[in-house]
Write a protein that binds this DNA or RNA. Sequence first.
DNA 1: CGACGTGTTGATCTCTCTCAATTAGAGTGG
DNA 2: CCACTCTAATTGAGAGAGATCAACACGTCG
Lengths: 252, 252
Amino acid sequence: MKNVPAHQVHDCALCPLKQFSVFLPHSKQELETVQSQKRKESLYGPGEEVIREGQIQVPLFTVLQGWAFRFKSTATGQRQILSFLLPGDLVGVQQNMAESAAHGVEALTDLRVCVFERDAMWQLHQQHPALGFKITWLTAKGEWLVDDALLSVGKRSAEERVARLLVLLFKRLRVLQPDFDMREGMVFPLTQQHIADALGLSLVHTHRTLRRLEKKGLHQVRDGRLHVCDPVALAELADLNDSTSQAQRPLV
Amino acid sequence: MKNVPAHQVHDCALCPLKQFSVFLPHSKQELETVQSQKRKESLYGPGEEVIREGQIQVPLFTVLQGWAFRFKSTATGQRQILSFLLPGDLVGVQQNMAESAAHGVEALTDLRVCVFERDAMWQLHQQHPALGFKITWLTAKGEWLVDDALLSVGKRSAEERVARLLVLLFKRLRVLQPDFDMREGMVFPLTQQHIADALGLSLVHTHRTLRRLEKKGLHQVRDGRLHVCDPVALAELADLNDSTSQAQRPLV
DNA sequence: CGACGTGTTGATCTCTCTCAATTAGAGTGG
DNA sequence: CCACTCTAATTGAGAGAGATCAACACGTCG
């Protein structure tokens, strides 16, 4: 871990996440409060642990740049990835509630995070209810992701899980990258092991499943970039029909 | 669904959850705000849907009495139970964030819930930051449960999953029931199908796994009551060693 | 160069699923 | 009181998705 030197730390008013994160303040007062709670910015390298499972005194922070993931392990060391973290995601809300971290966080790429004071959670709620509300919102959004992952791991086939992970990441990424060119694909720092750990599959079976989807022409991963070749078919397989998704479900 | 007649509705000051829920107000002003946001109390019977998946305009509510569960289904109708809801649990935070319900909620027993106004989330945050903070807390706690379930379904064997579910429910129940007698067991309204749906297992395999644990003398389910016969062995199997849980994990 | 991480592929094994049929208890109606 | 129905639990048998074990290929890096 390295701290960003003071003169390179972003001023909240110039935050690169300005257009994306719900967490960002809108009024001048809110801005000042957030700024006052900001402690520093830190950098991590790929594979570096940002939060260790069980660590105490976990800070609250936001991802500014790069990818990371939350995970939890069993006593035997089996690791399950709970969710992937992208710029704008808030981390550490759960941690602030308990004595020690309920899950670990590890960087996938070079990672830049914005770290807040330990009691920022409370200060933000207290001084600007609108910010508190946004924190709740982000927390709920985080739970949506986990709910969805649980449904996948519990009830979907390997193929469906992989397809869904790809499509969901693709969608999240596209939002963050407005000037996106379909032909170039998107940065995709996950190894097959990460995918396996996120989907509750073995490494070998994950590999075979990816290969199968690729042979069907649905996607391609090369040189750390993801190319979604057939978005429609992939979304279909992923049970992510944009259309009237909910209405289609059997009502009885 | 039936609404509780006005004269039988609890006054917030006399809320039966007083001693349990973090959500409950502590100051007089907070109490008044919560009371003002309370719209009604409703009753549901076992198997009745409290929230339908995809339903719009979902209210915020708290469980007062009884059991329920949150669930999500695939396009093919496969149902995954995301978490079980007990008295004191807050439901509908996620829902308030999106247009439509991200998950359904179904009653397991006779269920009594306390329903709030649609914009209660915002009102509570705004008027009493401390309450907003508690809502965030409860939301984060809810996510902890799902994180844990995801780890189980992703990485644990059928036996471990069942054991863990039983122990976790047992612990949650014991907190809610201070005058608890070990010999009498606890109310346990889950069918094997519910357990299967929560753990991502088939009904048949869930049954066999339960039987195996029972034969080992770890637990017993009879007449809708759960008896934990060997708490230590069960917790062991469930990877829930109360002792120094976190410290035991491999640090590298 | 050797070590290591990641991807790849084949062979084998097993946990868990699916299909199928039976039993037991609760409720309903004649 | 008994036949009828429905749900939940139960048990057996066979099938399969995915796990495990084992090698090997390839690029990177100290």
